[in-house]
Design a protein around this nucleic acid. Structure first.
Lengths: 187, 187
DNA sequence: GTCTATAGACGGATAGAC
DNA sequence: GTCTATCCGTCTATAGAC
């Protein structure tokens, strides 16, 4: 009556995100993940070919959303309306990625040494750099680029800080508005 | 002519910061640290009682500076001038902590599971939370607290992003100015 | 699709000589 | 203060039965 647990793969991912966030990627063993799911380690290897493969599957979604956002931004005119929309869509990505975003952020050092990082490129640094460029005029001053970095960094940081204790709709509205104000701040 | 290498302890700390930043805390073995210093693992144990003790010694400086800043802020009047000064001093702490700050940020998950974290309190979350409270009026709206979080988060993020490629004096001046503008942004 | 059993490697840490 | 040698635990991953 209970065995037909569907979607073991998704359950593994979910438990992995929780444990990687709490105890860190390296601090979490496959044994712990298996125990919480009440299966054995070997069962995990049926669904994922390695431990790294689990975290790679989690990165996938976030990375491709960011890549799509950057590609979209490159096709738009470099004006204030595009900048506002870029920030707004970035907030959406952070919000949708939810706990995975938090997990990746808290394990940046561990995640960047994975072999998948070499093929997919630097998860955060490279992609955030592209976003900052899109948010600044082509010949922007250093101060203007710092402004863009603070808007992006502020979005990420405030989401990680408040998403557990605030209504997410209200939070995303507040963050969106402030971020837009920041990039349009006079130099 | 070369043996009298002074300050082995400090050299261990320096190499540890570099490797912990590049490969992560758990991804760095004491063997690697020892090899780069051309000593043996056992030698490290003369200077530090454990691997955790090395990273704890690095956290110490940052944590006590933050605690001092928070204590100072609590004694000041809650006005715009205090807020500006809080942000400015926070920039100083980030700048002085330099690579250690970066290392701690990139290893948040690993660092928060250390037993020293239990006695010293959450390194970032707790202290940043106190700073946010000091930057908002006692009865501040959620949006006002988000604004404060974005200023702090923006400082941290932009410093980590630009400190390697920009003049640090120029960077800290730009960051200070923008952060001050953010917290005083009208709701 | 999940199990038992185990291989094989590497990590942190200590003992004791010099 | 640094070394050699070693212990013991844990981890990822695989082989092969059911």
């Amino acid at each position: 009556m209970n065995d037909p647990r569907p979607d073991t793969r998704a359950r593994i991912q979910q438990v992995a995100v929780e444990l990687f966030t709490e105890h860190g990627y390296d601090g979490t063993s496959l044994r712990e993940i298996a125990e919480r799911l009440e299966v054995t380690k070997a069962a995990l290897y049926y669904h994922f070919k390695s431990k790294e493969d689990i975290v790679a599957s989690l990165m996938e979604d976030y990375a491709s959303k960011m890549d799509a956002l950057i590609a979209w931004g490159r096709e738009q005119p470099a004006d204030a309306s595009t900048r506002r929309e870029l920030l707004s869509r970035y907030v959406d990505i952070v919000a949708e990625s939810g706990q995975v975003f938090r997990m990746l952020h808290q394990n940046q050092a561990a995640v960047s040494t994975l072999s998948s990082a070499k093929t997919r490129g630097e998860l955060f640094k490279e992609r955030v750099g592209s976003l900052i460029n899109l948010l600044s005029e082509p010949d922007a001053s250093a101060a203007a680029r710092v402004k863009a970095a603070m808007a992006i960094g502020g979005i990420s940081a405030s989401w990680m800080f408040f998403s557990a204790q605030m209504d997410k709709g209200e939070l995303s509205k507040a963050v969106r508005g402030i971020a837009a104000d920041i990039v349009e701040l006079p130099a």
